[in-house]
Measured scan of single mutants.
Amino acid sequence: VKKMAKAIMADPNKADEVYKKWADKGYTLTQMSNFLKSKTAGKYDRVYNGYVIHLD
């Protein structure tokens, strides 16, 4: 998940494709939050927020 999150950060155009894969795998927002937690607070906030919007 972190590898794909980094791919989104490097190229935001990949976001919809990645979010669809995550949704197809049934990842919940709680799971995504836990996967994307980082020592650098807020590092993956943009990715998480994008997934929230995708699921909505």
Rank of each mutant, 00 (worst) to 15 (best):
V1I: 14
V1D: 02
V1S: 03
V1H: 04
K2C: 14
K3Y: 08
M4K: 05
M4I: 05
M4R: 04
A5S: 03
A5Q: 03
K6F: 06
K6I: 10
K6R: 14
K6W: 09
K6P: 02
A7P: 01
A7G: 05
I8G: 02
I8L: 07
I8M: 07
I8A: 07
I8E: 01
M9L: 15
M9T: 04
M9G: 02
M9P: 01
M9N: 06
D11C: 12
D11W: 06
D11S: 07
P12D: 06
P12H: 07
P12V: 07
P12W: 15
P12C: 09
P12N: 06
N13C: 14
N13Q: 11
N13V: 09
K14F: 09
K14P: 02
K14R: 11
A15T: 06
A15P: 01
A15E: 04
D16S: 13
D16K: 11
D16C: 14
E17L: 08
E17A: 12
V18D: 02
V18K: 02
Y19G: 01
Y19T: 01
Y19H: 03
Y19L: 02
K20V: 07
K20G: 08
K20L: 07
K21P: 00
K21Y: 15
W22Q: 00
W22L: 01
W22F: 03
W22N: 01
W22D: 00
W22K: 00
W22M: 00
W22Y: 02
A23R: 09
A23S: 12
A23V: 10
D24C: 12
D24V: 07
K25E: 14
K25M: 15
K25P: 03
G26A: 05
Y27E: 01
T28R: 00
T28K: 02
T28P: 01
T28Y: 02
T28N: 06
T28A: 01
L29D: 04
L29K: 12
T30S: 12
T30D: 14
T30Y: 11
T30W: 11
T30V: 12
Q31F: 07
Q31D: 14
M32R: 00
S33L: 14
N34Y: 13
F35P: 02
F35N: 04
F35E: 06
L36I: 02
L36S: 00
L36V: 00
K37H: 11
K37D: 10
K37M: 09
K37C: 13
S38Y: 07
S38I: 05
S38Q: 04
S38N: 05
S38V: 06
S38P: 02
K39D: 14
K39E: 14
T40E: 12
T40H: 15
T40A: 10
A41C: 12
A41G: 10
A41V: 11
A41S: 12
G42E: 06
G42Y: 06
K43V: 08
K43C: 10
K43I: 09
K43H: 06
Y44K: 02
Y44L: 04
Y44G: 03
Y44R: 02
D45R: 06
D45N: 07
D45M: 06
D45L: 08
D45E: 09
R46S: 15
V47T: 01
V47S: 02
V47W: 04
V47D: 03
V47F: 04
Y48S: 00
Y48A: 02
Y48L: 15
N49Q: 14
N49C: 15
N49T: 10
N49E: 15
G50W: 07
G50L: 05
G50E: 06
G50Q: 05
Y51D: 01
Y51E: 01
Y51T: 03
Y51I: 04
V52K: 14
V52Q: 12
V52R: 14
V52N: 03
V52C: 09
I53M: 13
I53S: 12
I53D: 13
I53V: 13
I53E: 14
I53H: 13
I53R: 14
I53N: 14
H54T: 04
H54A: 08
H54L: 05
L55C: 06
D56E: 15
